[in-house]
């Protein structure tokens, strides 16, 4: 199988790698780029554990070929922290509310929640539920995840309002 030269930007860092045409973006991220934070729960688009942001949109990395991401900007869980010493407000809230148990769903859910809050900082309960409908969590019953997203949204909105005032 011939390999294709792939250039992508992951979490702000330019990366280049050789990938086979059949490689999924998920496998390329995990194996070629060594970014194992993104998880494989099903490999067929049903669980959301592999959710990453490609050019601003959340997608299942298992349902996309690596070569299809040519030139794309990708954000994975490893890029969610604003800097190495600071957690994203969502991560803070996940800690506080116990929104992560086994944690296998957490990278995908955090990425999905970021997309949701970036677009809509104060989502209703219905909007949160709808936003997570492609992400399976089998440990938490989702209640703590909903709480954490609401908390993070409120804090992010407040911080934004403050920085506008300042």
């Amino acid at each position: 199988m011939n390999k294709i030269h792939l250039e992508i930007t992951v979490n702000g860092e330019a990366r280049s790698m050789m990938v086979e045409g059949h490689r999924s973006l998920l496998d390329a991220l995990r194996e070629e780029a060594g970014l194992t934070g993104t998880k494989k729960g099903c490999d067929v688009g049903d669980c959301g554990a592999c959710t990453v942001i490609v050019d601003g949109r959340p997608v299942n990395a298992c349902l996309m070929l690596a070569v299809e991401a040519q030139g794309a900007e990708i954000l994975t869980i490893e890029g969610l922290q604003p800097d190495p010493d600071t957690l994203h407000p969502l991560q803070e809230a996940f800690m506080e509310h116990g929104a992560s148990q086994c944690g296998f769903c957490s990278p995908g859910i955090l990425i999905m929640a970021k997309c949701l809050l970036d677009r809509n900082p104060l989502p209703s309960d219905e909007e949160i539920r709808f936003g997570l409908s492609g992400n399976i969590c089998r440990c938490t019953g989702y209640t703590k995840i909903f709480d954490a997203i609401r908390t993070a949204g409120r804090r992010m909105a407040a911080a934004r309002a403050q920085s506008v005032e300042a």
């Binding site: 688009g45 959301g48 959710t51 949109r57 959340p58 997608v59 299942n60 349902l63 996309m64 999905m112 936003g131 409908s133 492609g134 992400n135």
Partner: peptide, 9 residues
């Protein structure tokens, strides 16, 4: 149709 992630692809 499926999920938001799937609909983006």
């Amino acid at each position: 149709l499926a999920s938001i992630q799937v609909r983006n692809r």
